[in-house]
């Protein structure tokens, strides 16, 4: 259970992803990366931090940084709504073998979705604001497309 993409396993095996939306686009992250989904808390801005770093939250006594994926991806910044949530993810720390928790701001949580490996395709090289190296692939679910994010790489930069 490291950075290996799910597509490497057998096609019949389904991976579970947590899907959410950002600016009407649908994204997915592997569910094992997710620690918790919480409602929007008060975010305290941190001075001299990157613009995508919205600030820090106090989650039951633990101080966690919160990243605004809108800003990270250069999308239109959207206002907070009642649907806005913070997904607490567990990613690899800066030192190898360590784990750290971070919050990511999403517009709306969709669901926990099982996606077959056969539904996943390689990310295209062009046409998107996100560089393809941050992607695990593109999943075709019914008529829509869900972009599967490699959240470790997204948050590493």
């Amino acid at each position: 259970m490291n950075a290996t993409p799910a597509s490497s396993s057998s096609p019949s095996v389904q991976q579970k992803y947590l899907t959410f939306t950002l600016s009407a686009e649908s994204y997915g992250i592997p569910v094992l990366k997710v620690r918790e989904i919480i409602q929007l808390l008060e975010i305290t801005p941190v001075p001299q931090s990157p613009s995508y770093m919205r600030g820090i939250i106090n989650l039951r006594g633990k101080v966690l940084p919160v990243v605004d994926l809108h800003r990270k991806f250069g999308l239109h910044p959207s206002e907070f709504t009642e649907q806005t949530c913070i997904v607490i993810v567990q990613i690899e720390g800066s030192a190898p073998g360590t784990l750290k928790q971070m919050g990511i701001l999403v517009d709306n949580i969709e669901e926990v979705l099982g996606i077959q490996a056969s539904q996943v395709e390689e990310p295209p090289d062009f046409g998107h604001a996100i560089s393809s190296e941050n992607l695990l692939g593109v999943a075709k679910v019914q008529d829509s497309i869900k972009i599967l994010l490699d959240i470790d790489k997204v948050l590493a930069g």
Partner: peptide, 12 residues
């Protein structure tokens, strides 16, 4: 949200 969290836990 609680159900989603439960689903996440179940997946783990």
């Amino acid at each position: 949200l609680l159900a989603l969290n439960a689903a996440v836990e179940a997946a783990r």
